[in-house]
Simulated scan of single mutants.
Amino acid sequence: MYYILFYNYVDNIIEKRVPFREAHLALATSFVESGELLLGGAFANPADGAILIFKVENKAQVEAFVKQDPYVQNGLVTSWNIREWSVVVGAAL
């Protein structure tokens, strides 16, 4: 099953994320290596949020990512939402 995690960021995220970026990327990389996280990245112009696309058995696995994310733990994410996603075109991984 596919899920999209939506993040909304604080203002000035580019500067504020610096102390937490390495740990955030390490967490994301661990989920990529386990095959759970397929794609992720921030919005540009403005950098006010991000999406991460997961392929997992259930929503709880995405929630586990959120709970561990240094961006969430340190208040850089103002809100987040998880949506189940039905892929209808393109190459499903």
Rank of each mutant, 00 (worst) to 15 (best):
M1Q: 08
M1H: 11
M1P: 10
Y2T: 12
Y3I: 02
Y3E: 00
Y3H: 10
I4E: 05
F6Q: 07
N8K: 15
N8W: 15
Y9D: 11
V10F: 12
V10N: 04
N12S: 07
N12H: 10
N12P: 02
N12M: 08
K16D: 03
K16T: 04
K16N: 07
V18Y: 01
P19I: 09
P19S: 04
F20R: 01
E22T: 12
E22F: 05
A23S: 12
A23I: 10
H24S: 01
L25T: 01
L25N: 00
L27D: 04
A28I: 02
A28Q: 00
T29S: 03
E33V: 12
S34R: 15
E36D: 12
G40V: 15
A42Q: 11
P46R: 05
A47R: 06
A47E: 13
D48F: 08
D48E: 13
A50T: 08
I51E: 04
I51K: 03
L52D: 00
F54Q: 04
V56P: 02
V56F: 12
V56A: 04
K59W: 11
K59H: 11
K59D: 02
Q61E: 13
V62N: 00
F65Q: 00
V66C: 07
P70N: 06
Y71F: 15
Y71M: 02
V72K: 07
V72Q: 09
Q73F: 08
Q73C: 11
N74I: 11
N74G: 03
G75C: 07
V77W: 01
T78L: 13
W80Y: 15
I82F: 10
I82D: 00
R83C: 10
E84Q: 13
S86T: 14
V87W: 12
V89Y: 14
G90V: 09
A91V: 14
A92I: 14
